[in-house]
Amino acid sequence: MESRAEKAISYLVLSLMAVVVLFPVVWFLLISLSPETSGAISLSRPRWSNFAHAWQQAGFSHAMLASLVVVVASVIGQLVLAVTTGYGLGVLNAAGHSVIFPLILLGMMVSTEAVIVPLYYQFRSLGLTNSWLGLIIIQTGMGVPFGTYWMRATFRALPGQLAESARIDGANSLRLLWSILIPLARPAIYTLALLSFMWIWNDYFISLVFIADPAKQTATVALGVFQGRFLVQVNYMAAASLVVAAPVLILYVFFQRQFIRGVLAGALKE
């Protein structure tokens, strides 16, 4: 069994690790509240207006709207396609299943770098660069492999009897999906929604490539521009950073289990 000393050392090391992980984040939070632009922390009079000021300076009214529109539309798009393809492949045993499914799985191994260059020039010729719609199409399309893999596995894990009896009661394929399978798969769908939200909100590379127009930039790209320009006003930079990180962080506080379980399940897909 474990000795007292072993236990104490474990807690000590774990606490040290926790401090190392938390320090940069907490330190940035303190800077963001401090009136000093130099990045020195003085909390005798925390200045919450830093956030409003940074919001304005970084043009976040535009950028947050852009991120919100792109993320919400892409998450919905990803979910719809994940559910339909997952259902078609996992439950209805779609014609060509044995070819289509590996083809879609291939997408999980293709890195963004391998597609982004022609995608950009393709979308430029279609007039879809500098456009939220273009970004939404890309994010939705790129989400198909993981979403399909995820929903197919979810549907396959459901008991077969349910579908059989629904069929006998005369339900068609759409009714079966909508009123029997989707309600049962709800927890998995929520987890997928959380993961998609996080991935798309946090994306920088794709948004940077496809949106050059400052009026249409997403929050991560706008933050990148802001930090390059306002190097000397550290407190505003910290405030702006926290604003961009906040939506996912807030979700993480409430849905920690789903995040961790989802990321793990996604990682262990092989």
Partner: peptide, 27 residues
């Protein structure tokens, strides 16, 4: 498993088509 039968293969393909087409185009 859930309703595995060959009866709905073509309906199934119709469900798969939108996702497959978009993925095919983008990726």
């Amino acid at each position: 498993r859930v309703g595995v039968s060959r009866r709905y293969r073509w309906v199934g393909l119709a469900f798969v088509a939108p996702g497959l087409l978009l993925y095919g185009f983008v990726v």
